[in-house]
Design a binder for these strands. Structure first.
Lengths: 203, 203
DNA sequence: AATAAAAATGAATCGTCATTCATTAATTCA
DNA sequence: TGAATTAATGAATGACGATTCATTTTTATT
């Protein structure tokens, strides 16, 4: 019987290696070495290199997705839901920096398999965000003059780029709590029902 | 005499090919075919595949950077400067979608050469944004309780993710003007001096 | 027009892995 | 314990593609 934990062992090793060298520069032999097994063993658990990458996404993003979904299901207020989404994302990225790096790079790849994953699983994850926005607009706590998809992208982009600093570490590195607090202040202030900003076109 | 325009021809072909297949899946022969020249000719103009990629960044991002810098230098008001930065970025990404795709994917790669470019040239570009924020805080038009680096990341992330939709085109695709307007509303509303948001921690 | 210099060509080279599979090791079970 | 089954190994295979360079073509010079 194949040890169930060897599957997880390989995924964990692969996540580290992909994060360090990127998917294309990572060799199967690198992953094998990191996992302290033979190259061939990997093929007893995965079909090929792409399969490993997709499995990483399935496992890690799947976990974040379902946890966030469950927590949100218990709430009514869109603002609380948004806070949960943000906290869950940032916590997960802080906890598993290797996965964060892999996701933030490889999920943008144009390969057919990645694209498919992005257009289904990942899109579903992001659409939670859009649903929260729409709900907030219905509840009249988020402004309705802005398009939910644009808000969704804005928030996700902000989350991703903010958490990316934890990996590249060239600039001042804020604690999780600080980052959450500041991001939430910034985003919510822009999102709440209020007087619209009026500003001239330059040039 | 080597035609100066062949250099540009290759860069343009490479940008298309990299955007479509990604740097690692792109073959030199693909670029040559796109440019309608022989494989070997490329090596009369570039040292290697990486050199092509870096040259693309140098040319395109360099142009955006210096144009934005010049325009900003003429202004005093941080809010106007911010608007210029945002408009310039989004206009450039809308105009050259292939480059946008290349930049948004390949600039995140972990290769030494890319990392170096990111940590110098690209960092300089982004730091314009940080400077604008700091100025706005000094001018007391942007709130000072938020960290400039976090704001910088938030804004850039929002810009990138918002403009990425123009390439992946799975969801509703807003005009440049709409996007600029909405993003600016959202970001500025969050950034302007105002009453802080108070919100409970969930769970 | 003939020669020289510069550019361009693309077939051949060479290194690099992903993947396979014959062999060995470990585990199960009778 | 000793087959029989399952898992693991890692050397060998084969495809792929970046880069080179001997040859051809184009352009400049006299």
């Amino acid at each position: 019987m194949k040890a169930a934990n060897k599957h997880a062992l390989i995924l964990s090793a692969a996540t580290k290696v992909f994060a360090k060298k990127g998917f294309f520069n990572a060799r199967i032999s690198d992953i094998a070495k990191e996992a302290k097994i033979a190259d061939g063993t990997i093929y007893l658990y995965f079909n090929n290199k792409h399969d490993i990458l997709i499995s990483i996404f399935d496992k890690e993003l799947g976990a974040i997705h379902s946890q966030t979904k469950d927590m949100i299901a218990k709430e009514n207020d869109a603002e609380i839901m948004l806070r949960i989404f943000i906290i869950n994302y940032l916590r997960a990225m802080k906890k598993n920096k290797s996965f964060a790096g892999v996701m933030q790079l490889e999920l943008r790849q144009t390969d057919k398999q990645i694209r498919e994953y992005r257009d289904t699983q990942f899109a579903a994850y992001l659409n939670m965000l859009a649903s929260i926005i729409v709900l907030g607009q219905k509840q009249n706590i988020f402004r309705s003059d802005l398009n939910p998809d644009i808000i969704k992208r804005t928030i996700y982009g902000a989350l991703e780029e903010t958490s990316r600093v934890w990996n590249i570490s060239l600039e001042s590195n804020y604690s999780l709590e600080d980052t959450i607090q500041q991001l939430f202040q910034l985003i919510l202030a822009g999102l709440r029902v209020q007087h619209p900003v009026i500003s001239e076109e330059p040039a």
